[in-house]
């Protein structure tokens, strides 16, 4: 996370070899990115760009999603199974035969994601995945990302969406002016007013509420609605009776 122009996208472009370091090195699963092609790294690292129009080109959603699979040499049966599955997960089945360019911005974004998820990369990089998504799609996306993560995939998300992040509670790396200024868990970082403003973020809404309730003895580092409710109920007289 970090302000526009902090270097987040530039950094993650090093993770699939799109950019090579001018100094130092990047190891992906032990492989030095300077010594292999982007195509080789792509098998391990899936990258979904911020602007879906930078990666979509096929005539139908189905062609788009099966393109990489064909290139990686999967057989017909596997391809059709994978396409089926991923379209279903991302709620795109009814657009199968549509042109990606006829879809809304949020829908095109999901097509881009589907086309990468289809080949099941070990590492997934998502640049601003929540832009243009409504809350229903965001919640689906969140559950899906959490599930991939539990299955052992490494997920790296570049985002400004503070509220989305409070629901995932990931490790957060904050960047500013090309440098990493903080690295820690979500609760610790998102409730630190100095860090948050340095990175051009805002405190989560619930944190803002609890900062103002500090005089009443509430903790400051609250980020979720459910814990907020619990803390308030506990404080009210007879709270334990409720």
């Amino acid at each position: 996370m970090g302000q526009n122009g902090a270097g987040k996208t530039t950094l993650v472009k090093h993770f699939n070899g799109l950019l090579k370091p001018s100094k130092g090195r990047v190891l992906i699963d032990g492989i030095d990115t300077r010594h292999v092609s982007v195509a080789t790294l792509a098998r391990k690292v899936g990258f979904v760009f911020q602007n879906p129009d930078h990666q979509l080109f096929s005539e139908t959603v189905e062609d788009e999603v099966s393109f990489a699979l064909k290139n990686f040499g999967f057989d017909e049966k596997t391809i059709s199974e994978r396409v089926e599955k991923v379209l279903n997960i991302l709620d795109l089945t009814h657009y199968r035969k549509s042109s990606p360019f006829m879809l809304s911005g949020g829908e095109r974004k999901r097509v881009a994601l589907a086309s990468v998820l289809s080949w099941d990369p070990k590492i997934l990089i998502l640049d601003e995945p929540t832009i243009g998504q409504d809350s229903y799609q965001k919640e689906r996306l969140r559950q899906f990302i959490m599930q991939l993560n539990q299955q052992g995939k490494t997920v790296i998300i570049v985002t400004h969406d503070v509220e989305f992040v409070t629901e995932c509670e990931p490790r957060i790396i904050l960047m500013k002016n090309g440098r990493i200024i903080a690295d820690g868990d979500a609760r610790e970082i998102l409730t630190d007013p100095n860090l948050v403003s340095e990175a051009s973020l805002v405190l989560p809404e619930i944190t803002q509420v609890f900062m103002r309730l500090n005089d009443y003895g509430f903790p400051r580092n609250v980020i979720g609605v459910y814990e907020a409710k619990r803390l308030i109920l506990e404080r009210l007289s007879g709270g334990f009776m409720r």
Binding site: S135, E163, K229
Partner: peptide
């Protein structure tokens, strides 16, 4: 699926 603000969700909870 309109994303209502977190403070409104707290109100409802």
């Amino acid at each position: 699926g309109v994303g209502i603000p977190k403070v409104v969700r707290l109100y409802l909870l």
